[in-house]
Each structure stands twice: as structure tokens, then as C-alpha cells.
């Protein structure tokens, strides 16, 4: 377990310069995520084009892992139909939690989203898994809000 496996250059870069940072207004859906353990808070706004996410922004305050994860997620899901986003969510979740999940970037690279593999170091730091998954849970909540469900804050605690 080495620090540079957690704080890979890609992650530090996305933390320093988060992509798609801000809020869409108007947006088709908005959701707030909160990790009470460390105080991480983030808001995801998105716009849809039919069944696909046409645009997405996030903002908030969090540790490097949560900011970088949200930033990379924002790049990865833009333009994707919901079924692909759901599949991606499952794979990221496995990457973060399962010791034997494929961590080499090839699996992701085939989809043109290899960067997300940089998060594989997180699973060696169990206390930080929730930091990396907060944005995905928040995205799910935003997508659920599209169905007209009342917006409810999502918490990873």
C-alpha cells in the first residue's frame, strides 16, 4: 500500500483542476451528496438529451479523492445513455471495493475512459472508498430525480 497508488498524478491533477466544475442553470436534475464523516459535500447538475446525459457539472467541497472522482466521472458520463452510465457505475463500484476487480486500465480504455482506473488505489484505503463513490451515488440520485421523484439529499454514511 503506497501513497502514490492512492494519490496518482491523474488524481492530483483532477483535484487541482477539476473539470466541469460549477452548476448548470437551468438543469434537468440536481442532487446533493454529503459524506458526514469527513464533511464532503457536492452538488451534481445535469441536462439530458433524450436518454443520454448531454451535460453535467458538479461543485462542492471535498478531499482530493472525492473531487478527482467527481471530475473524472463528469468526463466519463457526458454523452452516454443511461444504461451505459449504470454499467459504468457498477464497474467503478467493483473497482473501488473488490480486491480482484480488474484494475488495469485496458478494461476501461476500451471504452475511452481509462482515467477512471486511476481510482483503483482507493480500495487499499477502506476509509476513503466513500470519498470516491460519493459523486456516483449523487449522480444516481440526480438521475432518479428525473423521474419526478422528490429530490432527497444523498449520504454515504
Amino acid at each position: 500500500m503506497e501513497l502514490n497508488e492512492l494519490y496518482r498524478e491523474v488524481i492530483l491533477d483532477h483535484n487541482r483542476h477539476p473539470r466541469n466544475f460549477g452548476r448548470l442553470d437551468p438543469a434537468d436534475a440536481l442532487a446533493n451528496g454529503h459524506n458526514p464523516l469527513c464533511g464532503d459535500k457536492l452538488t451534481v447538475t445535469l441536462r439530458m438529451d433524450g436518454d443520454a446525459i448531454s451535460d453535467l457539472k458538479f461543485d462542492g467541497n471535498g478531499c482530493a479523492i472525492s473531487v478527482a472522482s467527481a471530475s473524472m466521472m463528469s468526463e466519463a458520463v457526458k454523452g452516454r445513455p443511461r444504461a451505459e452510465v449504470d454499467a459504468l457505475f457498477d464497474r467503478v463500484h467493483a473497482l473501488l471495493t473488490q480486491a480482484d476487480a480488474p484494475s488495469d486500465a485496458t478494461l476501461f480504455r476500451s471504452d475511452g475512459i481509462g482515467k477512471l482506473a486511476a481510482l483503483s488505489g482507493v480500495r487499499e484505503f477502506p476509509a476513503r472508498v466513500k470519498c470516491a463513490s460519493l459523486c456516483w451515488h449523487t449522480l444516481n440520485a440526480a438521475l432518479a430525480n428525473l423521474q419526478g421523484a422528490a429530490p432527497s439529499p444523498i449520504s454515504t454514511e
Binding site: Y7, G39, C131
Partner: peptide, 24 residues
């Protein structure tokens, strides 16, 4: 971020608390 600080310090054998300390 304090949470990152906590992880890096832990890696160096230093146990501190990082968070809101039950005082939001």
C-alpha cells in the same frame, strides 16, 4: 483537505483525527 492529510499522516505512522470532531 484534512481528510487527505489524515491518510498521508497515517501512512507515516501518525494517528490524528481528521473531520468535524462531532462539532458540525
Amino acid at each position: 483537505h484534512p481528510h487527505d492529510l489524515g491518510t498521508i499522516l497515517d501512512h507515516e505512522g501518525v494517528a490524528i483525527r481528521a473531520g468535524h470532531h462531532c462539532a458540525m
